[in-house]
Amino acid sequence: GLTEEQKQEIREAFDLFDTDGSGTIDAKELKVAMRALGFEPKKEEIKKMISEIDKDGSGTIDFEEFLTMMTA
C-alpha cells in the first residue's frame, strides 16, 4: 500500500491538474497536465487515457481513479 506521504503527494498532483476545483479531472485538464509534463497528446490519446482510467464511465477522472493510475 501507499504511505500517507505518498498519498498526499498524489493528492497535490491531482489538485494541480483539477484546475477548476471540481474534484475530477476532465479531458481538457488532463491535456493541460500532460503538456506541463512535456507531452503533446492528441485528442484521441487523451480520450483513450481517460477511458482506460475512468472505471465508472463518467468521462472524468476522480481521485480514486487517479490514485489507481499513479500506482499501477
Rank of each mutant, 00 (worst) to 15 (best):
G1N: 06
G1M: 08
G1P: 11
T3C: 09
E4D: 12
E4K: 13
E5L: 09
K7D: 02
K7L: 12
E9H: 09
E9V: 13
E9T: 14
R11D: 01
R11T: 01
R11Y: 02
R11M: 04
E12Y: 12
F14N: 00
F14Y: 02
D15A: 10
L16M: 09
L16S: 05
L16G: 05
D18S: 03
T19M: 11
D20C: 09
G21H: 12
G21C: 13
G21I: 02
G21V: 02
S22I: 01
G23S: 02
I25P: 00
D26I: 03
D26C: 12
D26L: 08
A27R: 08
A27I: 15
A27H: 06
K28E: 10
E29Q: 14
L30A: 04
K31L: 15
K31H: 13
V32T: 14
V32L: 15
V32A: 15
A33V: 14
M34Q: 01
R35G: 10
R35L: 15
A36L: 12
A36S: 05
A36Y: 15
L37G: 02
L37D: 02
G38F: 02
G38K: 04
F39Y: 10
F39L: 08
F39M: 04
E40R: 10
P41T: 07
P41C: 15
K42M: 12
E44P: 05
E44T: 06
E44S: 10
E45M: 07
I46V: 05
K47Q: 14
K48L: 11
M49S: 01
M49Y: 11
M49P: 02
M49C: 11
I50G: 01
I50H: 02
I50S: 02
I50L: 15
S51F: 09
E52C: 15
I53E: 02
I53K: 07
D54T: 14
K55S: 09
K55W: 09
D56S: 09
G57C: 13
G57Y: 07
G57S: 05
G59S: 09
T60L: 09
I61P: 00
I61E: 00
F63C: 02
E64I: 08
F66Q: 00
F66P: 00
L67D: 00
L67Y: 05
T68Q: 14
M69Y: 11
A72D: 07
A72P: 07
